[in-house]
Write a protein that binds this DNA or RNA. Structure first.
Length: 594
RNA sequence: GGGGGCGUAGCUCAAUUGGUUAGAGUACCGGACUGUCGCUCCGGUGGUUGCGGGUUCGACCCCCGUCGCCCUCGCCA
């Protein structure tokens, strides 16, 4: 073969190419040796084409060569396109009408037997993730991973198109920045030029985009890598990608509307799904009450109800004392759920009870309703009237189950939120919902939460989030009542975006820092450049960041973030392929003064 | 750091709950086959049961330790 370079791609040839001499480059997807004849499926990113090598007297070497091929060898094949024998066409291949009668083959590279199969078959278990991450270059040859990378490309393309059409500017911001100890743990980079000093890799471009607004760039966006040195989860990597955007002279609705249009386009193009606009909005308070979560999965019911008023009037001491101490009693009603849980499961130490306890509950109370009466041990504390009231409130039928929690409001909400997700799994409520997407804006967040570490308050979103204008006086009198102009986007129980209108008044910013327990000196030291910039004619502005990895997960239908990242880290933040992080040469450390 | 699950052939999994030679499918190797397309058929190689220790007449199985992977709580303004 004079020139091994391809004339066509492996997904390209059709019946109208019959008779043409072509060259294909690709990998051996499968190999079927057959006596005097070999069938090869040659694969590239664009498709698969069948190659036939026949033993002939004129060219015995070619057949001998092909006889030794293995899977995943990289080949250049020259040959003539010919029709398949009548009735032997393969409708599963886009090139299935034809095949290549090989006249010459060059081995571009051999491949040892792969440690796992690159070809996927329906219903077949994938190899373990360890080995696939270690040989990620082979794993990425799999069709489903190819598809998710293409999906991410499409996602990025839609975003750039949509935002460019609306006068957004894509601006890059530094990776080497200033450490700000609030928020997540920073990844630090030592400075060689300034021994003892460190850059921090960005947790997000938050401050830079605000500065860009102050500079007058009005609409900004960036598909930005963000880094946080925190423990990993199925939907969390130490480095991840955000669509970061910011707009000037806008209020909350302007940002939400802009993102709604983008979300609609993304779902249409990536999934062919029409999202109805506007996206539903729910207050943080309502989400915590009804779903026990700030990222509720609203694709199924099992909503939480507050029974505090009812519990107050019962003779059950556990409930009465809880209410008297300012706690709440809340419950989930599970229609026809009684038979699914044995009393042993529900009793202290039982499987279901333990889930509640692990989520923070002191204990799980429960009531089954069978043979027209409540059972469960605690029913004896409830009068006939109380029982009737309970029955009426939920419309309880025989076979139903109630799970009740008495605890501080936050604990009760969180425990029942966890139970709710557990119940959804037990009852398979999400089966068949793979193609349903529930989008939800969470709004009306409190600006501050009490600091569990004993300080005064911590910011719910971040310290630059603007309070509701009417609440500004409360910054001094009662910060816990201040509501933020912040919003989160939730899809199917995943937090996929969050943002806020920012503070553009340096006086308000100073007050917020004060609520957070920062002295003016500390605020000046950490964020002096921002406070200073705010004084220089800062426009009202706000924005949002979308977690694109999670968007890709939802669009790809996977629960594993590693499935949508080309080269992900494992749960201990190690790159299984390169081995990073690794020790470095002493000289490197010496140069850095370490 | 805490809780849970897992670790057996290259890969996916079994092994009658402590019983004698650790099996199957697949992959791989050899052989047969000119229309296959997850080819088929015949034969074969392949195991420190993650690692170390202990209990026992006997350990893949039980105990202790350790390593690794996954899920999760804490953490993620």
């Amino acid at each position: 073969m004079q020139d091994w370079r391809r004339t066509h791609r492996c997904g390209e040839l059709r019946a109208n190419h019959i008779g043409t001499v072509v060259r294909l480059n690709g990998w051996v997807n499968s190999y079927r040796g057959y006596g005097q004849q070999v069938f090869l499926d040659l694969r590239d990113r664009f498709g698969i084409t069948q190659v036939v090598v026949e033993a002939t007297k004129e060219n015995p070497a070619l057949f001998q060569l092909a006889d030794g091929f293995g899977r995943e060898w990289c080949l250049a094949v020259e040959g003539i396109v010919r029709p398949r024998l009548p009735g032997k066409e393969n409708p599963d291949l886009i090139t299935g009408a034809i095949e290549i009668e090989a006249t010459s083959i060059q081995v571009l590279n051999q491949c040892p037997t792969p440690p796992f199969e690159v070809t996927e078959f329906p219903g077949e278990e994938l190899a373990g993730e360890d080995i696939r991450l270690e040989k990620r270059y082979l794993d990425l040859r799999r069709l489903s991973l190819q598809k998710t990378l293409v999906l991410r490309h499409t996602l990025n393309r839609i975003i750039r198109e949509y935002l460019s059409e609306r006068d957004f500017l894509e601006v890059e911001t530094p990776l080497l920045g200033k450490s700000t100890p609030e928020g997540a743990r920073d990844y630090l980079v030592p400075s060689r030029v300034h021994p003892g000093s460190w850059y921090a890799l960005p947790q997000s471009p938050q401050l830079y985009k605000q500065l860009l607004m102050i500079s007058g760039y009005d609409r900004y966006y960036q598909i930005a890598r963000c880094l946080r040195d925190e423990d990993l989860r199925a939907d969390r990597q130490p480095e991840f990608t955000q669509l970061d955007l910011e707009m000037s002279f806008v209020d909350q609705d302007d940002v939400l509307t802009m993102i709604e249009g983008l979300a609609q386009k993304i779902f249409k193009v990536c999934r062919g799904v029409d999202i109805a606009l506007p996206i539903r909005r729910m207050s943080y308070e309502e989400a915590m009450l009804r779903y026990g979560s700030d990222k509720p999965d609203t694709r199924f019911g099992l909503e939480i109800s507050d029974l505090s008023d009812w519990a107050k009037g019962t003779d059950f001491r556990v409930f009465k004392e809880a209410i008297a101490a300012g706690s709440v009693v809340r419950a989930i009603h599970i229609a026809q759920g009684a038979s699914k849980f044995s009393n042993t499961d529900l009793k202290p130490g039982g499987k279901t009870s333990e889930i509640a306890v692990n989520a923070g509950a002191k204990g799980l109370a429960w009531l089954k309703y069978e043979d027209n009466k409540f059972l469960g041990g605690i029913e004896k504390f409830f009068s006939a009237d109380s029982q009737a009231a309970l029955r009426d409130q939920f419309g309880i039928q025989n076979g139903d189950l109630l799970l009740l929690i008495a605890d501080k409001e936050e604990v009760a909400a969180q425990v029942l939120g966890t139970m709710r997700l557990h119940l959804a799994q037990v009852f398979g409520l999400l089966q068949g919902k793979e193609n349903s997407f529930d989008l939800l804006w969470l709004v009306d967040f409190p600006s501050f939460m009490p600091d569990p570490q004993g300080g005064r308050y911590v910011a719910n979103h971040h310290p630059f989030t603007a309070p509701r204008v009417a609440d500004i006086p409360l910054l001094e009198s009662d910060p816990s009542k201040v509501m933020a102009r912040a919003y989160d986007l939730v899809i199917n129980g995943y937090e996929v975006g969050g943002g806020s209108i920012r503070i553009h008044d340096p006086a308000v910013q100073a007050k917020v820092f004060s609520v957070l327990g920062l002295t003016p000196e500390q605020a000046q030291e950490k964020f002096g450049f921002l406070l200073d910039a705010l004084k220089h004619g800062a426009p009202p502005h706000g924005g949002i960041a979308l977690g694109l990895d999670r968007w890709a997960m939802i669009l790809a239908g996977t629960a594993n973030i590693r499935d949508v990242i080309a080269f992900p880290k494992n749960q201990r933040a190690r790159d299984m392929m390169t081995g990073a992080p690794t020790p470095v040469e002493p000289k490197q450390l010496k140069d850095l003064g370490l």
